[in-house]
Design a protein around this nucleic acid. Structure first.
Length: 603
DNA sequence: TTAGGGTTAG
């Protein structure tokens, strides 16, 4: 219902205008009122005035302005109203079509945006350079690469390929749709690369998890003379540092931010917390976290999962309580972080409680990931029957993640019977993960069931699955040294192996004997011992002991989970050589000190 | 006379 007083008040404020500007005609008056509309009710009254004065039909500019005001207003239901206005324009022009496309895109109605474009082409209305950025954004959101390519064809045909806005939209569209080569192709052709061109390139790669490429581009971008990196670029780069463990670069970005920006926003600060956590500097992350004036659930979940990574389960739970006390609501990611924290620290009772709370509150719909965490928690603690019951009672579809987690627990706790169920279910899901077959064959190997080992291995060969080779990385004076198992490629290979030999002797005096239960091969013990000796983590430790100052912390990053022998070995080394050794494996951090590990042998 | 690209964090 239109309320008359609204128009009255708008008109009242307009009196000033007519008083001071006698030239003002009816159309200008209406356009002035249009600009002042704050609500859809006000707008409807002004729209009625345009119609009453026949301006809507007689002036294309007026009609376009009415349409644009409504389409870009953000009022509830505004696009439906805009569509009805659009249909009443006798002869809509390019501007009107562009308005509708942009309106729908801002409204997240991407299919509608594409339909408007189709209508435009079919009606013989020529698009212009303003048409394409929004349209390409619609393709980006829909991941419609086919339509995107077609539209690129139109851009080329109509000669808009040189427009920097169109070019940047194309870079973004291709990048976000996973067509990296095409996005690079457009990027390389650019005569003038703007901040948006670079950030499209960098963030598309970040979105695909291509962290190294992301950092390479970021470094290149920083080298550009006329380009000032802004906060959003820094956030993406920090995220890449966190995911690659590039602490030095992360620290230099932090330094740059402190020098150039007086007040860091919450996203930047959260990225810093996450970067420091994932690069092993828990104290630094906590320091930044505590100094933050304002935190949200993303900040908390970075910190909670950070504490989980470092095996600080109890602290993670306290942090979770603090978050609730601060009046913030937990979301699905926070629950995953908390459940993970419980799992990493063996806090079974607490984990169960959090999971039940989540179900009871009903604000967060449990996903397979949450069930995966619970299964992991129970499985690690040896509660295999309960873990299996949890999987079987899942109200949502069981996925490979839950069965993989269960299988892993069965292997650790040597329960071949239940492990077989997990293996069967995983194979039913047609897993192409070579790791699954290895865990299966490992489990059978432990139970000396060699026929089953052979079957699992044959399956790997038949399916042509490639095992991810394990590696360990040590950073020394800004240079990374990467070692694989039995690595002989390093220039200092001779010294490293001499050191390894010496370490073996020292370890023997400390009562170490190799744990061969996790070696997969059906070979004799001597061969197994030799293989174990050359695991990448040990080679990396030997290298670090040789070339880092005595007493300094040794930091190692590895791509796979640590085997139990490397774990025992590293604990002993930390006591013999009086070194703290931090190892970041696929799941978490291990801090080895005085013969113990922060994971309390629970990982 | 009307407008457009990269929105970043767990």
């Amino acid at each position: 219902m239109i309320k008359a007083p609204i128009l009255q008040s708008l008109l009242a404020s307009r009196d000033d205008l007519t008083t001071h500007n006698p030239e003002c005609n009816k159309e200008q008056e209406c356009l002035y009122l249009l600009k002042r509309c704050k609500t859809i009710d006000e707008f409807k009254q002004v729209h009625a005035r345009f119609i009453k004065l026949s301006l809507f039909c007689s002036s294309q500019y007026s009609a376009s302005s009415v349409l644009a005001t409504c389409a870009h207003s953000g009022w509830e239901n505004s696009m439906n109203y805009a569509a009805s206005i659009f249909r009443r324009i006798d002869d809509p022009c390019t501007f009107d079509f562009n308005t509708m496309i942009r309106g729908y895109v801002n409204y997240m109605s991407f299919e509608e945006a594409l339909c408007v474009y189709n209508e435009m082409i079919e009606g013989g209305i020529e698009p212009d350079n303003f048409t394409y950025p929004c349209l390409l954004k619609a393709c980006t959101w829909l991941k419609s690469i086919r339509e995107g390519k077609q539209i690129h064809g139109h851009v080329f045909k109509l000669g808009f390929e040189d427009d920097v806005f169109v070019q940047n939209s194309l870079i973004n569209m291709y990048g976000r749709c996973g067509e990296m080569a095409l996005s690079s192709e457009v990027f390389e052709k650019l005569e003038f690369k703007t901040a948006a061109s670079w950030s499209s390139m960098v963030s598309a790669r970040a979105g695909m998890g291509m962290w190294s490429e992301c950092l390479m581009l970021f470094r290149e971008m920083c080298g550009e003379a006329n380009l000032k990196a802004e906060e959003s670029g820094m956030v993406t780069a920090l995220s890449a540092c966190a995911n690659t463990g590039a602490l030095n670069l992360g620290m230099s970005i932090h330094g740059f931010l402190l020098r150039n920006i007086s007040k860091l926003n919450i996203a930047v600060q959260t990225s810093l917390v996450d970067m420091y956590v994932k690069c092993g500097c828990l104290d630094k992350a906590l320091h930044i976290f505590k100094k933050m004036e304002c935190r949200n659930n993303l900040t908390y979940s970075a910190m909670i999962s950070g504490l989980a990574l470092h095996g600080e389960g109890e602290a993670a739970l306290r942090m979770f309580s603090e978050m609730i006390e601060e009046g913030l609501e937990s979301d699905h990611v926070v629950y995953v972080s908390v459940l993970n924290a419980c799992s990493h620290s063996g806090l079974v009772k607490e984990g169960r409680r959090v999971f039940q709370e989540m179900l009871r509150e009903g604000k967060v719909e449990p996903t397979a990931e949450h069930y995966g965490c619970l299964v992991d928690l129970l499985g690690r603690a040896g509660l295999l029957e309960e873990a299996l019951e949890t999987i079987e009672s899942m109200p949502i579809k069981q996925n490979d993640v839950v069965w993989r987690s269960f299988l892993s627990s069965c292997r650790v706790h040597q329960n071949v019977e239940l492990g077989k169920i997990a293996a069967r279910e995983l194979l039913k899901l047609n897993s192409h993960n070579p790791g699954d077959y290895l865990v299966i064959s490992n489990m059978y190997a432990k139970a000396q069931m060699w026929e089953d080992v052979a079957r699992a291995r044959t399956e790997i060969a038949i399916k042509g699955l490639k095992q991810t080779p394990g590696f360990s990385i040590v950073e020394l004076k800004g240079k990374t040294h990467r070692f694989v198992s039995q690595d002989r490629s390093h220039p200092q290979c001779k010294e490293i192996y001499k050191m390894l030999h010496q370490m073996e002797w020292q370890l023997k005096f400390e009562g170490y004997s190799p744990d061969m239960t996790q070696t997969l091969l059906n070979v004799d013990d001597e061969e197994k011992r030799e293989r174990l000796k050359g695991h990448s983590q040990k080679v990396a430790i030997a290298f670090a002991l040789l070339y880092t100052p005595p007493g300094s912390i040794i930091k190692i990053a590895r791509n796979l989970r640590m085997c139990s022998d490397c774990h025992t070995y590293t604990k002993k080394i930390s006591i013999i050589y009086e070194r703290k050794i931090v190892v970041r494996d696929r799941n978490r951090f291990h801090l080895f000190k005085d013969g113990t590990c922060s994971c309390k042998d629970y990982w």
